[in-house]
Simulated scan of single mutants.
Amino acid sequence: MSDPEKAGPPVSVEGVVTKASPHAIEETLERLEDIIRNHGLRLFTHINHSWEAQQVGLKMQEAHVLIFGDPKVGTPLMVASPLIALELPLKVLIWQSDNNHVWVSYPSVSYLTARYAVPQELASNIAGIDNLIDNVVRA
């Protein structure tokens, strides 16, 4: 099996950052959930797309979306730029590709701030997601 870091993500979409996880999917999920809790953030929901597909007789790769944030941080962004509410709270996709590599994908902070014209002084409210995900995928 090739090293996913060297191969790069299997897909690329403008405005989405995808990082390889050296951990199994369950461990990657646990690491993200722990980091969310340890940073005092609220986990609003965990959507298990693969389980939902199975419930209707379909099969798909493992795919989980965790939706989390902090109203104290997100609210000022939505006041300044109401349409960013379409993106908040933040969402992270943890998924497994056909070759069994685990990936973590999330919206790019620079893309969100540009797309929704977030004032520069509020960009830091969501900038922490990069470090948060780096901690999740750290070996």
Rank of each mutant, 00 (worst) to 15 (best):
I25V: 12
E26D: 14
E27S: 10
T28C: 10
L29G: 06
L29H: 05
L32A: 09
E33I: 13
R37L: 11
H39C: 07
H39W: 02
G40L: 12
G40Y: 12
L41K: 15
L41R: 15
L41Q: 15
L41A: 13
R42N: 12
L43Q: 13
L43K: 15
F44I: 14
F44Q: 10
T45L: 14
H46T: 12
I47Q: 05
I47G: 00
H49C: 04
H49F: 06
H49D: 03
S50I: 02
Q55N: 04
Q55I: 00
Q55D: 02
V56D: 04
V56P: 01
V56L: 07
L58K: 07
L58C: 04
M60P: 01
M60Q: 14
Q61G: 14
Q61T: 11
Q61I: 06
Q61W: 01
E62M: 11
E62T: 08
H64A: 07
H64F: 04
H64D: 08
H64K: 02
V65E: 09
V65Q: 07
L66M: 15
I67L: 13
I67S: 05
F68K: 07
G69Q: 08
G69T: 03
D70C: 13
V73C: 09
V73K: 11
V73R: 11
G74N: 12
G74Q: 11
T75M: 08
T75H: 10
T75S: 12
L77N: 04
L77Q: 06
L77E: 03
L77D: 02
M78W: 05
M78G: 00
M78L: 07
M78I: 08
A80P: 00
A80K: 00
S81T: 05
L83E: 12
L83C: 06
L83W: 07
L83R: 14
L83G: 07
I84P: 00
I84S: 02
L86P: 04
L86Y: 13
L86C: 09
E87C: 02
L88W: 10
P89D: 10
L90C: 13
L90Y: 09
L90K: 13
K91G: 13
K91N: 13
K91E: 12
K91S: 14
V92N: 03
V92Y: 04
V92C: 00
V92W: 01
I94F: 03
W95P: 01
Q96C: 05
S97W: 05
S97Y: 04
S97K: 01
S97I: 01
D98Q: 12
N99K: 12
N100E: 13
N100R: 14
N100K: 14
H101K: 10
S105C: 10
Y106K: 08
P107H: 15
P107Q: 14
S108F: 09
S108L: 10
S108R: 08
V109T: 15
V109Y: 00
S110V: 11
S110H: 13
S110R: 12
S110L: 14
Y111K: 06
T113M: 08
T113S: 11
T113N: 01
T113F: 03
A114Y: 05
R115P: 01
V118M: 09
P119Y: 09
P119M: 10
P119A: 09
